[in-house]
Design a protein around this nucleic acid. Structure first.
Lengths: 189, 189
DNA sequence: GGATGATTTCAAACTATTCTGAAACGACCG
DNA sequence: CGGTCGTTTCAGAATAGTTTGAAATCATCC
């Protein structure tokens, strides 16, 4: 193992750790993932502990969480009782897994809550008078805001599902498409 | 103000606060934004403090941070020295601002770091022997991983910029497009 | 310029999250 | 089975992040 390679790996692990917040996972979890990804071959718990200088408990929990996210997998070596872990090496597959999880953990519950909130303020068409009129306007404005938010997240969810979908090439395709579109395309409206 | 409306607003604020982690901001900051968004008209610091039961310092810092993110703006009322704040009401514009900031704060620095890391491991073509050969292979595999990561984030950045771009309709357009594409499209490859 | 009122700052208090390490558990072997 | 090796759990410790509140600063008015 060359020194330069080790240094580059450490750097990568540090950088990936910084990004932890962005994917909504803890720093260590991100570092463990970074390590498995950049090393590219299966490692056991002890090797991970050793390299990242973390406790056994922490390593175990982080590995477990990464398994739950579906971005690392278990494997075994013949004649060795230890479990080995390795990271998904296809970057697009990795991010598909992340998107899948984040939709399930964040977007879906948010959508459910927004629908509930929308149902809390039905437009009351029976009351009369100026005060009632003012209330009604406020409620309608409120409902419009909630509806627009709902619409946005519905689109986001749809987009996400497509990206994640079996064929799994949706957004990859879209990205390529967009990448080639001239800057002003779609302007006409 | 009807009771149902107030309850719906509070619920929205709570839900939005939960999402704070997802956008990479603090809970209170998200709540302040939610309040301004859902109320839909300018509020002053004291009104925000009162409604969310937070301290003056906290309100001030959160409002400032939201200004930095470009998702709320200052305004004034005639004959009133206080500053008032109001949230962007266009949901797509809101998320464009969020994407713009997150690219600048997260993706751009990450790309810079990845380029640096890439340069740490030039393939050494001078050394001879079996050991040198093994090192070279390892380094090449490593470089391939970094390159793929780089490529992914370059695409992501490009996509983000398009979404954020002046016309600002890029991803909105893409989403509509994708929304209409039949499930299996793009399969051939 | 001084008084008034609004805003910002920041050290200390508080809260939430993450990590550790040792004990409990589980699986495999002979 | 009992022993050994490996994994998981979880209460408490450590750390990181957030909030407060009061003092400092800034802006405006008279």
């Amino acid at each position: 193992m060359t020194a330069a390679l080790t240094k580059a790996q450490d750097q990568f692990i540090a950088v990936w750790g910084q990004m932890a917040g962005a994917w909504g996972i803890s720093r260590t979890m991100a570092e463990v993932h970074a390590l498995l990804f950049i090393v590219g071959e299966p490692m056991c718990t002890d090797e991970v502990m050793e390299r990242l200088q973390i406790s056994r408990g922490n390593a175990s929990m982080s590995l477990r969480a990464l398994l739950d996210w579906g971005i690392i997998e278990r494997s075994h070596k013949r004649g060795d009782r230890k479990e080995y872990f390795s990271a998904e090496q296809d970057v697009w597959a990795l991010f598909r897994a992340i998107v899948r999880e984040r939709i399930a953990r964040e977007v879906d519950p948010l959508l459910a809550s927004l629908y509930e909130i929308r149902d809390m303020t039905p437009a009351d068409r029976t009351r009369r008078g100026e005060a009632a009129e003012a209330d009604r306007e406020r409620i309608e404005a409120h409902n419009k805001r909630i509806d627009e938010m709902l619409e946005f997240f519905r689109v986001l969810e749809k987009l996400g599902h497509r990206f994640v979908s079996p064929s799994g090439r949706g957004l990859q395709l879209a990205a390529m498409l967009l990448g080639r579109l001239p800057e002003g395309a779609g302007e006409a409206r």
